[in-house]
């Protein structure tokens, strides 16, 4: 554990809680992509199956359980409790275009050929692109509520902080895992446009709207 990793995890946690808070407080999931939320739930489910097979630390297990619970909770709020507020017309990204390539790639580039390892690798690849339906939705509607922008910023920062963590771990522990590093870089690059808009608009008190 290092400071970049801890900040990354806290940023990730903040993002997930912010989203739940936004939906609960406004009693609405307008502007949130259900497809991105579904993809994240698939990601956590595929990755955290190791809760049953290996124990790393209390911190690690608690975070995994929180991420899993929160993501299923978000799906419940979006597709059941506040379903009428879900803006599915604008959530039209085809997620099979993300799931299938991620699955194929996880059979091609993987450390070890075991079911758990392939599922873990699949989750890493899928996570890298899981935000695309949400970004597509923002680009289609041309705007995002401020709290949604904060959510996206925290979610994007998390993997960017992990990149710093991997650099740090490479120098201090000789830790190097190219699968997570390359996927993490792709994931962070996808947010770059959004980061720019967030810094130039949202932080100056303006609403995020596209030209």
């Amino acid at each position: 554990m290092n400071i970049f990793r801890l900040c990354g995890d806290l940023s990730h946690l903040l993002a997930i809680l912010l989203l739940l808070f936004k939906i609960w407080k406004t009693r609405s999931c307008a502007g949130i992509s259900g497809k991105t939320q579904l993809l994240f739930t698939i990601v956590y489910t595929a990755r955290y199956l190791d809760l049953f097979t290996s124990f790393v630390s209390v911190y690690n297990s608690v975070m995994k359980i929180v991420f899993l619970t929160a993501s299923y909770g978000t799906l419940y709020l979006m597709f059941y409790k506040f379903k009428p507020t879900y803006d599915h017309n604008h959530d039209s990204f085809r997620i099979l275009y993300l799931i299938v390539p991620a699955l194929v790639l996880s059979f091609i580039i993987v450390h070890v050929y075991t079911v758990m390892e392939i599922l873990w690798t699949f989750s890493i690849y899928l996570e890298a692109v899981a935000i695309m339906p949400q970004l597509f939705m923002v680009s289609r509607t041309g705007e995002a509520e401020t709290i949604t922008s904060h959510y996206l910023f925290a979610l994007g920062s998390y993997r960017a902080l992990y990149i710093l963590n991997w650099i740090y771990r490479y120098y201090t522990e000789d830790f190097l895992d190219w699968i997570t590093i390359m996927a993490g870089i792709v994931q962070t690059i996808l947010y770059c446009d959004f980061f720019y808009l967030y810094i130039t608009k949202v932080l100056k008190g303006k609403r995020l709207s596209l030209p």
Binding site: S54, V56, S57, N60, K64, E117, F175, L176, D177, T180
Partner: peptide
């Protein structure tokens, strides 16, 4: 060095 199966990251 590769650290499989030590997956301590989230």
């Amino acid at each position: 060095t590769l650290v499989y199966p030590d997956k301590d990251e989230l």
